[in-house]
């Protein structure tokens, strides 16, 4: 059994219904996303079919199934941000970050994800880069931020 799962076992009994979500959340916290191997292990541990777990996990926005880039961009696509005048065009962003919505750039530096609402509707458009939230972002400002991240040497 995988170490991470082994550590969880005492806290998540097999017969408890909500063990599943809790375990998935911890995996995501540790790895940034749900890896296939770990879902398999959870399935085995909880005696559930892999596909059922994957199906359930895809129901929630919070779970990811691919690795994230060094800089993970979340763009609010909620109604309010979407309508705010200087709204950010996701296609532009895809071009600038060299990745599709929901994907990761080849150099693994950027990943992009549009999310439904981040709860700051009055300050839209809202963009979150890793843990930092930027409010009232104009396209120009976003441009500047991206350029500076690109220029940053590792």
């Amino acid at each position: 059994m995988n170490e991470l799962i082994e550590k969880m076992v005492p806290r998540f009994p097999v017969n408890k219904k909500d063990s599943l979500l809790g375990m998935l959340q911890e995996i995501q916290k540790a790895h940034g996303f749900l890896t296939e191997e770990l879902i398999r292990e959870v399935a085995q541990y909880l005696h559930l079919p892999v596909n059922k777990i994957y199906g359930l996990a895809t129901f929630y926005d919070q779970f990811r199934f691919h690795a994230l880039g060094k800089y993970h961009f979340q763009i609010c696509n909620g109604t309010s941000c979407h309508l705010s005048e200087s709204s950010i065009n996701i296609k532009d962003l895809e071009n600038q970050l060299y990745t599709k919505d929901g994907g990761i750039s080849r150099d693994r530096k950027f990943s992009l994800e549009s999310v439904s609402c981040m709860g700051s509707c009055e300050q839209g458009p809202v963009v979150k880069i890793n843990a930092t939230v930027f409010t009232n972002v104009s396209p120009d400002e976003l441009n500047r931020i991206i350029r500076s991240l690109k220029d940053k040497t590792e």
């Binding site: 079919p49 596909n51 059922k52 994957y54 199906g55 895809t58």
Partner: peptide, 10 residues
């Protein structure tokens, strides 16, 4: 009894 397919997404 194999549950090979399921609803994905929402």
């Amino acid at each position: 009894g194999v549950a090979a397919i399921d609803i994905m997404g929402r």
